[in-house]
Design a protein around this nucleic acid. Structure first.
Length: 200
DNA sequence: CCTCAGATGGACT
DNA sequence: GTCCATCTGAGGC
């Protein structure tokens, strides 16, 4: 399977965020693929964005990964119990990234069900299926992403983004934008329309 | 469908 | 000590 290379990520962060919608997040784990189509993502741009962990050149042990080259993986722990996965964008030194917020599971559901709920796919309720990977913490659990993946690469066999996946097609994407979720503290930046998504 | 409390730990001041 | 780029289960409608 072919994955998007560094060039794709080393571009304007808002462009990359928009272009990620509809693409395929691919995880190879235990010799199996887990694949999800990206339906929601948010941009964070350190230079001008109070919601970004690396705002105003802030560089700490946690945020140093944001200064790496485009295509690097930034994973952090949130609220003590969940992980959030980001893809670093732009050239090395820029400190910008895109948070993956939601994917629609396409392949490897059996394995993902074990990871996400510790159950067999056929045991899941309708509610659990609906909420399988429609949130940043949820998709990390379903794809077995943790701090181990921090500083890793999205240009690797283990983890990458693909433009297409076999015969899978989806209806023409109508990409919407809105303010980002959960950053009410970020003053003027909370109103930036840097969330990109498709309905359901 | 909705709201709300509580869980939980690391980064930072 | 305070703040989180969140999720779950319980309860109400």
């Amino acid at each position: 399977m072919k994955y998007l290379d560094r060039k794709f990520y080393e571009r304007d962060t808002l462009e990359v965020a928009k272009d990620l919608i509809g693409k395929y997040l691919v995880r190879q784990y235990n010799g199996k693929y887990i694949i999800g189509q990206i339906t929601e993502a948010e941009a964070y741009i350190g230079a001008i964005d109070k919601a970004c962990h690396a705002y105003n050149g802030k560089k700490t042990e946690r945020t140093k990964v944001l200064y790496e080259e485009g295509g690097t993986c930034y994973v952090y722990l949130i609220y003590g119990m969940y992980y959030c996965m980001n893809i670093v964008t732009e050239k090395e030194g820029a400190a910008a990234a895109i948070l993956l917020r939601s994917v629609k599971l396409i392949e490897g559901k059996e394995l993902a069900a074990k990871l996400r709920y510790g159950k067999e796919l056929k045991e899941l309720t309708k509610y659990q299926l609906k909420n399988f990977s429609n949130g940043p913490g949820k998709l990390c659990k379903a794809f077995n992403i943790s701090k181990i993946n921090n500083m890793g690469s999205f240009c690797s066999e283990e983890l990458f983004i693909a433009d297409e996946w076999e015969e899978h097609k989806l209806a023409k994407l109508k990409i919407k934008t809105s303010p980002r979720i959960g950053i009410d503290y970020a003053e003027e930046a909370k109103d930036f329309n840097w969330r990109f998504y498709v309905e359901d």
